[in-house]
């Protein structure tokens, strides 16, 4: 398969969030600001790439029947590594993402790619696939985080764009997550058809 196509499908055509509706919990839960969305996206990308790498290496050794538990162990290992790394080097981000870091392990995107792609393809292709899917996810989260942060508090990546008093607080709170994502999916659907 063409490597570039393999990489770029995660951004638009098969974007996990906007078209496949996978990984909704972290998408809605952590995107109250752009930086949180980006951090979550990159953490997930790391887990995706490493899990795809390891699973494509050991795919021939795993018996068919226990492959799902085996995949989960591999994924959980890398999630634990990410958790410890973030706690050590970016404690502020670790605190604001909170519960959603261990929950990367149940993110359907990671297990989905392991099952659908890494368990059938070569190591190189699996890494490229993980990177594309992960960065596509990170892009979606950053986009949603930016929209919510800008509308809600008048900031973008913590840089003030307009006075906070004019912001609509609801976009930073829980309901705003659903509403903003609803409109974004509608807009992206429209763009795809056009």
């Amino acid at each position: 398969m063409n490597q570039w196509k393999n990489f770029s499908k995660g951004f638009f055509k098969e974007n996990a969030v906007f078209t496949l509706l996978l990984g909704m919990c972290p998408t809605l839960g952590v995107t109250s600001s752009a930086i949180n969305g980006l951090g979550m996206g990159l953490a997930t990308t790391f887990v995706l790439v490493m899990a795809n790498l390891v699973i494509s290496l050991i795919k021939d050794v795993i018996p068919e029947k226990v492959r799902i538990p085996a995949f989960i162990v591999v994924i959980a290992t890398f999630v634990t590594i990410v958790e410890m790394l973030m706690q050590a080097y970016v404690p502020a981000l670790y605190d604001s993402l909170g519960l959603f870091i261990p929950l990367i392990v149940v993110n359907c995107i990671v297990l989905g790619r392991a099952e659908a792609f890494a368990s059938k393809n070569s190591v190189g292709a699996s890494i490229v696939d993980g990177l594309g899917m992960g960065l596509g996810f990170a892009m979606a989260l950053t986009l949603l985080g930016s929209v919510r942060e800008l509308l809600g508090s008048g900031k973008l990546f913590d840089i003030s764009i307009y006075p906070e008093d004019y912001g609509m607080l609801v976009f930073v709170l829980a309901p705003g997550a659903f509403i903003a994502l609803g409109y974004m999916i509608a807009i992206i659907d429209k763009m795809k058809k056009a």
Partner: peptide, 8 residues
């Protein structure tokens, strides 16, 4: 989209 807005 409408389902998400209803959830909101």
């Amino acid at each position: 989209p409408i389902a998400l807005i209803v959830a909101g």
